[in-house]
Design a protein around this nucleic acid. Structure first.
Length: 620
DNA sequence: ATAGGGTTAG
């Protein structure tokens, strides 16, 4: 094939040996080899033609090689086949996948036939969508209809995912309506994308309704709802639907397992998580990096640090999320230095940090008392990595300063923030005020925090506890009145303990468990251990302290009951257990007492105690 | 038998 033939617009031939091999490699996803082959082709003097470009462009897109892609674009122009529909679409798609949507748009605009080709719109719309250019995606969709180009299911698949942005939910719903009216909704994949859209917008019920109404459900349909539940924090619903899925004969895949594992993490249900892990191995499902990351987080939150690390070490190519999960794991266990070391390793291995990993790093610092290191890293965020700190990072800084007792600096920091402080920022200040018993500043922080999150009961409880600590009866009543006016109900402080796959529920003061006697015996042993560790045994005979410990005992007894009967159990999850405020120990879960160290967790995070002092100071 | 597509982790 000569260059002149191509230039004159003669259709390319699939059967040149180069092209056949190129197609083979691209279809087998051997993109690197495809690009090498293309280069050898050039070196050998053969000219690429309209049949060679789509495969090579696709390879550049898959490997995110915009520079090679641009070179190819030049070759396309030189070969005169830019107008060839397949080439045109491949070009647009390549630029979109590489994040260069403007270049894709230029290709589209400069070729008159693209505005007649549905595939070109489809490629560009999905490109705008994945690059979160909501406005442009919708604009192209409107243009498409204006020009009378027919909208198909693939257009919808490209467009629907963009509708999760707050202002465009109405648009997404109107699209759904259009599909129902126009009959395009028979495509199962389109419905799947609508389920996801509703779930991402938080309309869990709408998503579920759509799911229930679907006559035919595929694997992805189930996954869409299950992961939707997981993303909305409905961990129990995830497990429930997972069971239903299995009993309806649909075989879960690794995508399903990711959501199930992450829900196990939130429930602290390690047993179920491990079962899932076994299942993954047994079913021969390739454990990909997604599954591994979810496993790390599951083991981390279930207290099995060693297992989490083992999974991390086994990942052949660790993603940024893998590192983030592992760093977060050390952070929640109060092993800030180890977490920071890992962060260094990550940077050294050439991975660019993002905002999420900085949240983990900063919170690891604050949980380990590494105040100045944390502040330094916060500064480096913008300076070295060009990441604009969000409120989530600012709340970590407030936490850092606050725990260190630098309350004035904390409030100064809040005033100097470039972003609007949110509930978490003021909440962190409120928490710091609790530790350092600063009622005046607490009242300020409280006023701000309930402005942001008026329905978050936790902040009312926190403020009330501050008044309790400072013996301000009038303040306590004021908070109670507020809570009553807002219709909060005081929930009973229940605890739950996962043991051998069963979840045991306890109320405060509950003596109904069949092993109550053992539970109380266990308490005595535990408390003795605590006293030894905190070093408070003999030198602390204050009447009030002793009373408070006695009161505390009862709750501990309930909470730790299972420990006695399961010496092998490493984890106990105990929710809402009140803490003895005099000895700085014991919150909601004890896993081991080793080396004068405790690991305790509540529903959302770990508390790592060393010498009786908790790394997070987040006491009730 | 070459282009556009639904579900996943921190």
């Amino acid at each position: 094939m000569t260059g002149s033939l191509v230039r004159s617009g003669v259709t390319a031939v699939a059967s040149t040996p180069w092209n056949v091999r190129l197609r083979e490699l691209a279809n087998k996803s051997l993109f690197g080899e495809a690009i090498s082959l293309y280069r050898s082709m050039l070196r050998s003097g053969s000219s690429p033609d309209a049949f060679s470009f789509p495969f090579t462009l696709k390879s550049c897109a898959s490997l995110l090689l915009p520079v090679s892609g641009k070179q190819l674009h030049c070759h396309v122009i030189r070969g005169g086949c830019e107008a060839e529909p397949f080439v045109l679409t491949s070009l647009i798609s390549m630029y979109c996948k590489c994040g260069l949507v403007e270049d894709a748009r230029k290709v589209f605009d400069e070729n008159p036939q693209s505005c007649k080709l549905g595939v070109c719109y489809n490629a560009l719309i999905s490109g705008y969508t994945v690059n979160s250019k909501v406005y442009d995606a919708v604009y192209m969709f409107r243009k498409m209809k204006e020009f009378g180009v027919s909208v198909d299911s693939i257009t919808m698949l490209g467009l629907v995912p963009v509708c999760t942005v707050p202002d465009y939910i109405w648009f997404g719903m109107s699209l759904h309506g259009e599909c129902v009216k126009g009959g395009t909704d028979s495509e199962i994949s389109v419905l799947n994308s609508f389920i996801t859209m509703y779930m991402k917008c938080g309309s869990v019920e709408s998503g579920r309704r759509l799911f229930d109404e679907m006559p035919v459900k595929g694997l992805i349909t189930w996954n869409a709802v299950i992961s939707g539940y997981a993303q909305n924090g409905l961990a129990y619903d995830v497990l429930e639907l997972y069971e239903k899925m299995k009993s309806s004969g649909v075989c879960p895949d690794s995508v399903t397992f990711v959501s199930v594992l992450s829900s196990c993490a939130h429930l602290g249900a390690q047993k179920i998580g491990q079962e899932v892990e076994k299942l993954i191995g047994a079913n021969g499902i390739v454990s990909n990096v997604f599954v591994s990351n979810a496993s790390i987080s599951m083991y981390a939150r279930c207290g099995n640090l060693a297992k989490a690390r083992a999974v991390f070490d086994m990942i052949p190519v660790k993603s940024l999320v893998s590192w983030t999960a592992m760093i977060g794991c050390y952070g929640m266990h109060g092993m800030g230095e180890t977490g920071l070391k890992l962060f260094d390793d990550m940077i050294k291995s050439g991975i660019r940090p993002d905002k999420a990993v900085f949240v983990m790093v900063l919170s690891a610092c604050s949980h380990s008392g590494l105040t100045d290191k944390g502040l330094e890293l916060f500064g480096a965020m913008k300076r070295e990595y060009n990441l604009e700190p969000g409120p989530e990072h600012c709340s970590c800084v407030v936490d850092l300063l606050g725990r260190a007792g630098r309350l004035d600096e904390a409030i100064e920091f809040i005033e100097s923030m470039r972003v609007e402080p949110d509930g978490a920022v003021w909440g962190a200040l409120l928490g710091a005020c609790k530790i350092h018993k600063n009622v005046d500043m607490a009242e300020l922080a409280f006023a701000k925090v309930i402005e942001c999150e008026p329905m978050n009961i936790g902040y009312y409880v926190l403020m009330s506890n501050i008044y309790t600590d400072t013996k301000n009866q009038e303040g306590i009543w004021r908070i109670r009145r507020m809570m009553r006016d807002r219709g909060f109900r005081k929930e009973p402080g229940y605890s739950y303990v996962e043991h051998k796959g069963r979840v045991h529920l306890f109320l405060v003061g509950d003596r109904s468990h069949e092993q109550t006697e053992e539970v109380y015996r266990m308490l005595d042993d535990l408390e003795t251990s605590v006293m030894e560790i905190t070093g408070n045994t003999d030198n602390d005979r204050d009447e009030e302290v002793l009373n408070s410990r006695r009161e505390h005992s009862e709750r501990l007894a309930v909470a730790f009951g299972i420990l006695n009967t399961s010496p092998g159990a490493e984890i106990l999850v105990i929710k809402n257990l009140r803490v003895c405020k005099d000895c700085h120990v014991f919150i909601k879960m004890v896993s081991k007492i080793v080396d004068r160290r405790f690991v305790i967790r509540d529903a959302s995070r770990f508390h790592y105690f060393k010498d009786g002092v908790c790394s997070c100071n987040d006491y009730w």
